[in-house]
Nucleic acid binder design. Structure first.
Lengths: 242, 242
DNA sequence: CATACTTAGTTGTACAGTACAACTAACTTA
DNA sequence: TAAGTTAGTTGTACTGTACAACTAAGTATG
């Protein structure tokens, strides 16, 4: 990067205007059999940009308190949901002169996956879950957050095609049909049962626990994630294109 | 993100310290039958951080001149290589209190793919190509640029497994064996000839031109990219894992 | 208590795309 | 004309999925 390269050689000049720097987090969970995302309502004071609008949780980097960007994202996540260490992945950054009325700003966007039980915990007062419909949510979002959300949904859907990411949306113990249902909700299309089972069991990702999920019909084997598993990558996508 | 959420409600306070904001570009090309990356030497003045070290091309965002982050990355690329619109993709961002001795800083990293002829053009005086060895280069890099380079190489290798990205490293006209060689250089492993040809020809990515590449042995069919082709995604990786 | 219903899980065949290997084709050089 | 090299094709095997029919195990209902 050569920080300082743009300034006078030999006399680094750091005294120029800097962009605003923020971090935003797209927090996903499966709730009510649907993919949902957590939004916060912006303060209603007219001095604020987009007063009263819904927005992604986030805010300025605190250069005194935040060690790095990921710690900043984790802090915002914890502030809004109380959740401490879920799946957290960097999504990308958006920066331009026009995205914030207060001036040139750049945001570092992350996305997080929460299991349902974590998503049902104590929310911040200004936070609320919204169903993802297509690649959008109902309310009009502040800033360029609709674009960021769209990128997050696309990234999630794309990775779900060939990774075990949805495992992070599951409770500690779950059945294979439940995991398949989560895949189907995220991908918004049905998957084939036997191929799904074969793939998941071959992936060395989950292990059976000595319990069954009882229900109104045949009980299902319960599984849990093998400990400390990074997401698994599959060599193929699910339904071949064309 | 709710920019401003961290400040007092009703009285947005923008008068707090902001991180330094930079953009860095990892510029790849195939040169001398190897994957190479463009580095620049930092000014030698002792007032600069990492004086004389090699670093990724980049620098501060110019909030007066740069419309957005990508325009800023394109500007840095053009400054160093003269190249105007190659393949340019966002890689990620790195930000922490410690990565720059001048204070809390965040960089937005991009990576670019250049065809060899573009990479051989007029370089900036402080710029030079280095072979990528493994996921590193020989010289010790300034800041956290070794880490950024490593992420770029990993991203490139990973995407090459299932996309047509290497097409952007090729000249306007090329043969299938040449394209395969480019894949092999990036992946650092040999690929199977017939499967490679089948995949590429089935991808509707390239079209033959009415010319042959002459050489000391059997001539090869020349192809070119179909116009305005976004990268193609394949449903499988090349060599199945395991 | 038998039967229907529902969901869990298995089995078998077909198919697509690649791996692997052997082959043919076209050119140069000696 | 023969040898060497690279381009390009062909055929068989294999892997993982698609598709569909099947069996298994429970509940609900008469």
């Amino acid at each position: 990067m050569a920080e300082g390269q743009d300034s006078m050689a030999g006399t680094p000049e750091l005294d120029f205007p800097r962009p605003l720097t923020t971090v935003d987090v797209v927090i996903f969970a499966i709730r009510s059999d649907a993919l949902q995302v957590l939004l916060v309502q912006r303060p209603k004071a007219e001095t604020e940009p987009f007063p009263g609008s819904w927005a992604l949780p986030g805010g300025f980097v605190d250069i005194a308190g935040d060690r790095d960007l990921e710690a900043c994202a984790a802090r915002k996540l914890k502030d809004k949901t109380g959740v401490v260490s879920p799946y957290l992945e960097q999504l990308g950054s958006w920066g331009s002169a026009s995205r914030d009325p207060r001036g040139w700003s750049a945001t570092h966007a992350y996305f997080a996956l929460l299991p349902e039980h974590a998503a049902s915990g104590a929310l911040a007062a200004d936070a609320q879950w919204f169903a993802v419909e297509g690649e959008k949510v109902r309310p009009k979002l502040a800033f360029d957050h609709a674009e960021i959300l769209q990128a997050a949904v696309q990234r999630l859907r794309s990775k779900v095609e060939y990774t075990s990411l949805p495992a992070y949306l599951m409770p500690l113990e779950f059945t294979l049909p439940e995991l398949q249902r989560t895949y189907e909700i995220v991908l918004d299309r049905p998957l084939e049962k036997s191929a799904f089972r074969t793939r998941m069991l071959a992936a060395d990702l989950i292990e059976p626990v000595a319990k069954m999920r009882k229900g109104p019909n045949r009980p299902a084997q319960l599984y849990r994630l093998k400990k400390a598993r990074a997401p698994v990558f599959f060599a193929r996508t699910f339904n071949p294109p064309g």
